[in-house]
Amino acid sequence: MDIIGWILVVVLFIVGMAGAVYPILPGALAIYAAFFVYGFFISFKPFGFVFWTLQTIIVAALFIADYVVNAWGVKKFGGSRASVIGSTIGIIIGPFVIPGFGLLIGPLAGAVIGELIVGSSFDKSLKVGFGAIIGLLSSTLVKIILQLTMIILFVIWILM
């Protein structure tokens, strides 16, 4: 049972890290689920209140940062609420419409369309779209760092 547990934990960690780059996958939640899989298959003994509190705080920070950092990129380049909404929709829909490049084109197009809808010039809309890409890349970097932190804390806790 230990081997099955470890295989599932590693698979969930891989899915989680892939989710940092590909937002359709449940990144942080997959990593969080790996802790429960470890507990059910191997042992909950290494984990206590501090472990669960830290991990829950990181998961909450990931969800908040995901939206805030993306919105920051759009707002930093002069975007409106419509371009923030358009960028968010583009992040979700883009990978399905244009596999591979949709992850970058989606938020760019969504922000540009959102900004054009509120009457901005095409040049300003492109600038805001670029901000959406900067926000997406910044958000991805933050997610990778925080999710790696979750995994490192897990390893530290089980080795203690």
Rank of each mutant, 00 (worst) to 15 (best):
M1S: 08
D2A: 10
I3Y: 03
G5R: 08
W6D: 01
I7G: 12
L8G: 15
L8V: 12
L8D: 12
L8T: 05
V10W: 09
V10C: 03
V11W: 11
L12E: 02
L12H: 01
L12K: 01
I14Q: 01
I14A: 11
I14W: 05
I14T: 00
I14K: 06
V15S: 00
G16S: 02
A18P: 04
A18Q: 05
V21H: 04
Y22V: 10
P23F: 07
P23T: 02
P23G: 07
P23M: 01
I24V: 12
I24T: 09
L25E: 06
P26V: 11
P26W: 12
P26N: 07
P26Q: 07
G27E: 01
G27T: 07
G27I: 03
L29M: 03
A30N: 13
I31Q: 07
F35Q: 12
F35R: 13
F35K: 02
V37Q: 09
Y38D: 11
Y38G: 05
Y38Q: 00
Y38M: 03
G39W: 12
G39Y: 02
G39L: 14
F40V: 15
F41E: 04
F41L: 10
F41T: 05
F41G: 00
I42H: 06
S43F: 04
S43W: 09
P46Y: 08
P46H: 15
F47W: 03
G48T: 04
F49L: 14
F49I: 10
V50M: 05
V50C: 02
F51A: 04
W52I: 02
T53C: 04
T53A: 11
L54Y: 03
Q55M: 15
Q55K: 09
Q55F: 13
Q55Y: 05
T56E: 03
V59E: 02
A60T: 09
A60P: 04
A60I: 15
A60N: 00
A61R: 01
A61Y: 00
A61V: 13
L62P: 00
L62S: 07
F63M: 14
F63H: 12
A65V: 12
A65I: 03
D66F: 07
W72C: 02
W72K: 03
G73S: 00
G73Q: 05
K76Q: 15
K76P: 05
K76N: 14
K76E: 14
G78Q: 02
G78H: 03
G79P: 11
G79W: 08
R81Y: 14
R81L: 09
S83L: 10
V84K: 07
I85C: 00
I85Y: 13
I85M: 11
S87L: 14
T88L: 14
T88P: 06
T88V: 05
I89S: 01
I89G: 06
I91Y: 11
I92M: 13
I92Y: 09
I93F: 15
I93M: 13
G94I: 08
F96E: 07
F96Y: 08
I98E: 05
P99K: 11
P99I: 07
G100K: 06
F101S: 06
G102L: 05
G102C: 04
L103A: 05
L104S: 03
L104I: 15
G106V: 15
G106C: 14
G106L: 11
L108Y: 12
A109Y: 04
G110T: 10
G110F: 14
A111P: 02
V112D: 04
V112W: 13
V112P: 09
I113V: 08
I113L: 14
G114I: 12
